[in-house]
Design a binder for these strands. Sequence first.
DNA 1: AAGTCGGGGCC
DNA 2: GGCCCAGACTT
Length: 386
Amino acid sequence: MAKKESKPELPALPELPILRRRPAFARALGAWYGRGHRDLPWRRTPDPYRIWVSEIMLQQTRVETVIPYYQRFLERFRDVATLATAELDEVLKLWEGLGYYARARNLHRAAGILVTDHGGLMPRDLAAVNGLPGVGRSTAGSILCFAHGQRHPVLDANVKRVLLRLYAVAADKGRPPVDRWLWRAAEILVEDAPDPADHNQALMELGATVCGSGAPTCGDCPVRRWCQAHRQGRQHQIPLPRPKRATPHYTIGVGVIHNDIGDVLVQKRPADGLLGGLWEFPGGKREGREKLTETVRREIAEELGIEVSVGTKITTLEHAYTHFRITLHAYHCTHLGGTPKPRAADAWQWLPVAQLSDLAFPRANQRILELLNASDRGSSPGTYDP
DNA sequence: AAGTCGGGGCC
DNA sequence: GGCCCAGACTT
């Protein structure tokens, strides 16, 4: 009989609460955290604004990556009012390279809401915080728990992994029934914690250091006595790897268009969608087997309604996004005529190469910028020789 | 319930 | 190359 393709069965989710009324668990976890942990900048402040900024930056992003961004961001935007009155372009510039740029847009928008609706202060009500753009249940719980000690569960990737192993639930993390179970488990655990903030920090610390996604070092774990996965020797199999999908590949051609006074043309991506609000060099996907120079000429004509001649190649680079990857070919181009009338951009401008670094560009464009700057410094300004 | 949204560090 | 990370939002 033919086997039917289907997703793996959900394992039976254990009854909760199992660890309820086990203060020994909470004490062991708290004592381990108290014995020593990473000294992270956002753990040194009770300021809800600073905690909020850290939590947004930390969404889907590793701690070590965030730290320098966090420092620079707070140096420039020291409080909610400063952030709210800043230009979004400047916020994006400080976010440049961190990824998931909707986070920066939401952060900026939420700062405006805080100023106009909450007197510039973070509300102390979970539902109100949860209602801010970019703030889900876990981030809202984190802000109020770490700033004010409120007893809310936190459920990030670290905590999810720890909980799935504690209860030996062989499931991948994305499934809604599993997430509902995880939230319930996190709620029950935080109810028993002597100090909710230390408890949540400890669970994340445990997941980030001892109970990592690679090889957990159970010998160092303060709560292995309570861990079903460890008892069963299945800690390496939990959580299940998430189902993978094919990632398409696209060939992209872009043009650095020079005009007769030596400026180059850049366009601003629409605020919504991929890399929203960032600047880029115009171009697009190669169609069929057309020559790359034709891709560049055609895309610029279609997107901006201007004619260019495509000159020498600047570079070719590979770049991977979350769900697809690209090979990007960049060419020098000469503007032949026409005023840009963008179809899929929010703005455009001619700019000297030296000023491009004032704008926020996607990572995939950084190499092009470096090469332009290098050749710009090596020749007299305002010239381009194809 | 499934897709979208970046980039880096690690294997 | 693939994998995952202090998740949220849209449809």
